[in-house]
Amino acid sequence: MPDPNWQPRIVAFFCNWCTYTAADLAGVSRLKYAPNVRVIRLMCSGRVDPQFILDALARGADGVLIGGCHIGDCHYVEGNLKTLRRFQMLKRLLHDLGIEDQRVRLEWISASEGERVKMVINEMVEQVRTLGPLNLPKRFADWDREMTSLEESIREKEREEAEVVHA
């Protein structure tokens, strides 16, 4: 039963030159968007190590948003192409792990597209809200408990068998 007070938690990685600046512009323009996204600034989306995304999800994020410059506009020539390549690989991995596609999103947002920051964030928050909580920390705890009880029952069985042999 989902918690009625649950709110999506989204971690965002924005590149310094385009998307972070666009988010600043959204602020200066006083656009209003959902408060569920918390931005971590990196110099380039190319710095987004897939581990950051996995770590965020593992620590309880319900979604991860990555923002970079449009293809061809990267401040560092082609960092965003590297991001794109890595992202596509990671998506397949996440898919196999059963993490829905809409939870992890890569967007190209240029410095002038404040309106787009608002649009993407609102859209993503709504999508993740529909999906419900990912809650990996709780799942990890559940799995750990399951593993422990499985192991416990195996050990139990082994003991029983040992007793039978003994007898």
Partner: peptide, 21 residues
Amino acid sequence: GCGTCVAACPSGSIRQNLFED
């Protein structure tokens, strides 16, 4: 200082000042 190589290093041996892992 884009950090693209940092994210790509398989052994985690490239690090970035101001943006350490």
